[in-house]
């Protein structure tokens, strides 16, 4: 897979006010855009009848990519939720694999067509698969962190979910357990304003999720989830602290779900168009591009070149993936048990 980075070499020195280098900023833009364009193509494939089900992360790319870039792929663990394509891209997933996943192809590295699309899981990359019952992965994250602590392995586990999931018991049980044992878990909540059709005020009486942390004795902070740079800057110290044995941390990234819940949802039944338009004006990818252009980090033609490369990568991946083999009926019975 080619990278936009091939254009010209980028500095690895952190830029003041950003705390990220040119190279990292390019990476951030590339991953956010790749996530969005992949999701757009997946929805198009759904409408064409080629992909049965699509659930996307549009509007949350800055939160996802910014948070995941604060981790160490290959070392740290990710217990993500179904909107986190951006995080998976940071952890090594490429466009072709994302397309294999949405089509349920046999070579999908997440589940080989057994698991539902967007229920990521890749042992080699330290990404754990999950149930569709939300928030269950918070407990798995606490368990992974407990295991790491027992083995004195300095890894950090990031568990993510939307704000709706924080009403489930597993979320509360995980926060409680992780704090009792000071486990290296970052609870990263992507508050996108909606739990399918229900606004946040129907999910909780508190003004947000971060203050729920206090009840369990861990720190909770709010960050602007439409700003990938701010997300990185908030998550990075929490990750460093957790790695040094400082215990868990909750970070609530305030963002917005720009699209309906899934390919099966019609959000006009519950969401005012005006609200949507207001948030669309704050699209995190657009804001990022405007900022780095305005600050003179990248010239416009470089950003255009990244966009062109992403478009080509997505087009190629979609065409390629559709030609790949499906699992055979006789494959259905394998892997129920690990033998031996």
């Amino acid at each position: 897979m080619t990278s936009a980075r091939a254009n010209r070499s980028r500095s690895k020195q952190p830029i003041e006010d950003y705390l990220l280098s040119e190279e990292q900023l390019e990476e951030m833009y590339y991953r956010m855009l790749l996530s969005r364009r992949l999701n757009e193509r997946m929805i198009a494939m759904n409408r064409q009848g080629r992909a049965a089900f699509v659930i996307a992360g549009a509007g949350q790319e800055a939160a996802q990519v910014g948070a995941a870039m604060a981790l160490q792929p290959g070392v740290d663990y990710l217990a993500p939720y179904y909107r986190d394509l951006g995080m998976n891209l940071v952890f090594g997933m490429n466009a072709r694999e994302a397309m294999l996943n949405v089509l349920g192809k046999i070579d999908d590295p997440n589940g080989g067509g057994r698991q539902m699309p967007s229920h990521w899981g890749n042992r080699e990359r330290h990404i754990v698969s999950q149930s569709s019952v939300v928030a269950t992965q918070f407990l798995h994250a606490a368990g992974i962190a407990l295991g790491a602590k027992l083995r004195q392995d300095p890894v950090v586990v990031m568990a993510t979910c939307g704000e709706g999931s924080t009403s489930r018991g597993d979320f509360h049980e995980a926060l409680n357990f992780a704090t009792i044992h000071r486990l290296p878990v970052i609870f990263f909540i992507e508050n996108n304003g909606y739990a399918i059709s229900e606004r946040t005020d129907k999910e909780m009486a508190t003004a947000g999720v971060a203050q729920r942390a206090r009840g369990y004795g861990l720190r909770g902070i709010v960050v602007d989830g439409m700003d990938g740079i701010a997300v990185y800057q908030a998550v990075r110290p929490a990750v460093d602290q957790a790695r040094r044995g400082g215990g868990p941390f909750l970070i609530e990234a305030r963002c917005y779900r720009l699209w309906p819940h899934s390919s099966d949802d019609d959000d006009t039944r519950y969401r005012p168009r005006k609200e949507l338009e207001e948030w669309a004006a704050k699209d995190p990818i657009k804001l990022f591009r405007e900022r780095v252009e305005r600050d003179g980090i990248f010239p416009r033609e470089d950003l255009d070149a990244i966009e062109a490369r992403v478009d080509e990568e997505v087009r190629e991946a979609a065409a390629w993936a559709q030609q790949q083999p499906d699992p055979k009926p006789e494959d259905a019975l394998g892997f129920v048990y690990k033998e031996g």
Binding site: N110, G111, G112, G113, R114, Q115, H119, S129, F335, Y337
Partner: peptide, 8 residues
Amino acid sequence: HYMSNGQI
């Protein structure tokens, strides 16, 4: 184990 295609 099944959902992850034998990985986990």
